[in-house]
Amino acid sequence: MFELLGIPPQALFGQLLLGLINGAFYAMLSLGLAVIFGLLNVINFTHGAQYMMGAFAAWMLLEWAGVPYWGALVIAPIVVGAIGIAMERLFLRHLYHLDHLYGLLLTFGLALIIEGVFRKQFGSTGLPYANPLPGGTRLDFMFLPWYRAWIVAASLAICLGTWFMIERTKLGSYLRAATERPDLVQAFGINVPRMITLTYGFGVGLAALAGVLAAPAYNVNPLMGSNLIIIVFAVVVIGGMGSIMGAIVTGFALGIIEGLTKVFYPEASNTVIFIIMAIVLMLKPAGLFGTPK
């Protein structure tokens, strides 16, 4: 048996797989951010709060309405996405013609308010949510819980589906065209404002879906989003703001790098992503997959 830097290969494979699982969350969240930024030019700081709302929606559906996990997987993103649409109509749409900074401040403020309301209502410690897929399978190198396998599969499907829809379908081509020249697209008879609203709702729905996926694995609490969102922003910056494929690939890749850091030097595992961000910004300011404007 070979050993790599003192780590037995079983442990290494295990950590790689775990990194992939965490990467799945980064990919899904940064995908939503990239879609929103790419099409709306808004830096959506509410994304973490919307992820948290997804997890809480799953909890509420289970506790108050008896809707099981699989139902919540469909209902929660729709509900939270609808709330996102209302937010876009009420607040965000007034800011499109202004600098990015205004959208950032508005969404950041909204995130603080949403988290505050949830904290007031549910406390800061969190709520229990049972695992819908208990058990797992013993691989050669580690025990793989069924639920984690499901997270990776679901996330891959969602990410690739979104990429396909935006880059390879007619609807996607409208969306992309509308971001370049909204006036021209509108002249062809396409309702651009509605398309933008629905896009925001879709991005928010993606965050909520990630939240539902997270509920059985992580502690459901009002701050779960703000702990994650900073990392996800770093992922988006590294991948290139607005690049869909960039967000997906970087999400998974950084999950793996973080996983490896947890083995070799655990203390640095939550800073390693920012170190990479700094390096990428120095060498390629537009991000790995971004195109300089």
Partner: peptide, 20 residues
């Protein structure tokens, strides 16, 4: 022992080290 960054979300990797 493994020192985990505070606050953390995913402990599975550290738990795996504990298991090993």
């Amino acid at each position: 022992a493994v020192r985990t960054p505070f606050p953390g979300t995913d402990f599975s990797s550290f738990l795996l080290q504990a298991q090993a």
